[in-house]
């Protein structure tokens, strides 16, 4: 017998070459246009917020890896995506301690205590954001956040304006301005065009599913249209809702988070629609100016239930004759 030591493993012996690292790298690439626009619009503080947020998220994951004596997992960039998304959802003048706390909640409570990547029942980024919004609501008032800035456009947070002044306030904002980022808001959420391009890139690459984004947008548009049609004075129109606040970020980057969303087609369509529906409900009936964060967290809970709607497996449920 010779001693050539062969590699032995099970089929399949081919792989398409995809990896979690690739997926997350593409996610970050897709987020870049909106993030860069945020830096151009809000200046160096925006860069600072996003850089701190991204590094904090990775730092917390590394700390938790070390404390729990597990191999370091930050190399898969999952924490980096959480951190970047988190930074993009904050105003540019967020204090450092808020970021440190928020990313800890996102990475530790949102992801690591459930067993790390893939196991989180909630979108980790949104969980961190929700805790910050509940605890330090004043830092999320985009009108006071940017008082020291001098903008060449209406420096009012669109959704807050509509909330306090009624649907007529929506007329202050041209839809084109909202889409091209000429509004105040979170660093990475204002540039609609960038988000749409990034989102379409991810969908074409197969890293996020069109079913989720499309049904989410449909949920927003249909629900907002019905409200608007019922009472045009009280409720803003569907396109205004689609282009303001976190909506587009939600449609292409938050609702599509894979661990907390369904995987079968019909459940994905229902889930996305439900997410869009809940957001408009929260904005128009609820107390929050922008319900995106809580609405998506809420539908996260429904995801496992929805995923029970699935085709029968081949030959399943037949009598065993």
């Amino acid at each position: 017998m010779n001693n050539t030591k062969l590699t032995v493993s099970h089929a399949p012996f081919w792989h398409d070459g995809d990896s979690v690292f690739q997926k997350n790298l593409n996610y970050m690439l897709a987020l870049l246009p909106a993030a860069i626009f945020g830096i151009l619009q809000f200046g160096a503080p925006a860069l600072g917020v996003m850089a701190l947020s991204l590094s904090c998220a990775m730092f917390w994951e590394l700390v938790i890896n070390l404390v729990s004596k597990k191999p370091a997992t930050i190399g898969d960039l999952e924490a980096a995506v959480i951190g970047l998304l988190f930074g993009m959802m904050l105003p540019a003048i967020t204090p450092w301690w808020l970021i440190l706390t928020g990313t800890f909640v996102a990475v530790f409570i949102g992801k690591m205590i459930f067993g790390g990547i893939g196991s989180s029942p909630f979108n980790p980024t949104l969980l961190g954001m929700a805790v910050l919004m509940m605890s330090w609501n004043m830092f999320f008032d985009f009108d006071t956040a940017y008082v020291d800035y001098d903008f060449a456009f209406t420096a009012m947070a669109p959704l807050a304006a509509v909330k306090t002044q009624g649907a007529a306030a929506a007329d202050f904002f041209a839809l084109g301005d909202l889409f091209l980022g000429r509004e105040v808001g979170a660093i990475g959420a204002v540039f609609g065009l960038g988000l749409v391009l990034g989102g379409i890139y991810l969908i074409l690459k197969g890293y996020s599913r069109w079913e989720l984004s499309v049904s989410f947008i449909a949920g927003i548009l249909i629900t907002a249209f019905l409200f608007h049609a019922a009472s045009p004075d009280a409720y803003a129109g569907p396109l205004f809702h689609l282009l303001s606040g976190y909506t587009l970020l939600g449609a292409f980057f938050l609702i599509t988070e894979s661990a907390s969303s369904p995987v079968n087609r019909i459940p994905m369509l229902l889930y996305g629609f439900l997410g869009g529906f809940m957001i408009i409900l929260m904005r128009n009936v609820g107390d929050y100016a922008d319900g995106t964060i809580l609405a998506i967290l809420l539908v996260n809970v429904v995801s496992p239930l929805l995923d029970n709607i699935r085709p029968n497996a081949l030959g399943k449920g037949m009598n065993n004759a």
Partner: peptide, 26 residues
């Protein structure tokens, strides 16, 4: 040789999409 990892399932749904027997692989 392709790598095999011990990363848990991230629920991306690609296996569901491709499975000819409609098995909930995740």
């Amino acid at each position: 040789l392709p790598k095999i990892s011990d990363t848990p399932c991230i629920n991306c749904g690609k296996c569901i999409q491709i499975c000819p027997a409609s098995i909930p692989v995740n």
